[in-house]
Design a binder for these strands. Sequence first.
DNA 1: CCCTAACTGGACCATTATAGGATTGATTAA
DNA 2: TTAATCAATCCTATAATGGTCCAGTTAGGG
Lengths: 141, 141
Amino acid sequence: MSFISTRSRYGLRFLIDLAQRGALGPIDLGSIAERQGIPETYLAKLVVPLRNAGIIRSARGAKGGYELARSPAEVAVLEVVEVLEGRSSLLECTDRPELCARSADCPTLPVWTGLETVVHDYLASVSVGDVAAPRAPDYSI
Amino acid sequence: MSFISTRSRYGLRFLIDLAQRGALGPIDLGSIAERQGIPETYLAKLVVPLRNAGIIRSARGAKGGYELARSPAEVAVLEVVEVLEGRSSLLECTDRPELCARSADCPTLPVWTGLETVVHDYLASVSVGDVAAPRAPDYSI
DNA sequence: CCCTAACTGGACCATTATAGGATTGATTAA
DNA sequence: TTAATCAATCCTATAATGGTCCAGTTAGGG
């Protein structure tokens, strides 16, 4: 339905959970899934492309789990969306002109490439670090 | 797959076809479908919400067909997309917070509402008239 | 009157994506 | 060695997408 599916939404929440826990060593999937209210078996599959993309690191075995492979500020939401949605553009016709016989002469193409650009620029401008600001800090009175 | 489906893409091409033919009276669906390479039976269904939204006008009977109900400059691409995709937002969770139990405290929500905003603003800024510039004008030498 | 074309509504279909479940195997800390 | 934990693969249910195919109705031009 939407080009931002649960994959991106769950994935971003997962990364924010990792970021908020900082460098305390790997955190296991089960605890994150529970905190975030995401089915663990589903989250387990989202984690694979994130690891392949070098966004997170995994440790197997007891006390294993996941941690960020980079600083949260160095992970753009754009990268997360691209990795998890498995495509780089909203519309195939903006990306692969060969898919549409009319693309050379299509008056609507600039509209969609323009949309593509504003979306791309926006998502590139936001990082996991921006979103993962510490929650409810202890403002002592 | 993408939030801009063939409905919006076909629909916009349909409206541009109407716009480019100007005020020459109604144009029948069949000829537009043929010119645009869109299945007529499919296009026939896209046309219904466009009429209901007051974007086009229909004339029945012989010499009947469709024409724009307003000036092309007064039809924003945003309206076309909203009418044809049948929803107003990319993500349900930005639109209907009650759908997500976490929305009150969801750190990712601002990312998606921000995305929503840039998409909305961009599509609102482009009109059918902007796109339907006359093709290959006769630049006399 | 007849032909054209829009309108209405629905049933149907094939393909793909989405969201999730389940099972088994490989690793490793303690 | 054993419990915890990632890793990989297969399975399923539901919905959306992009159509097709009627069958009948209404309205207007010639």
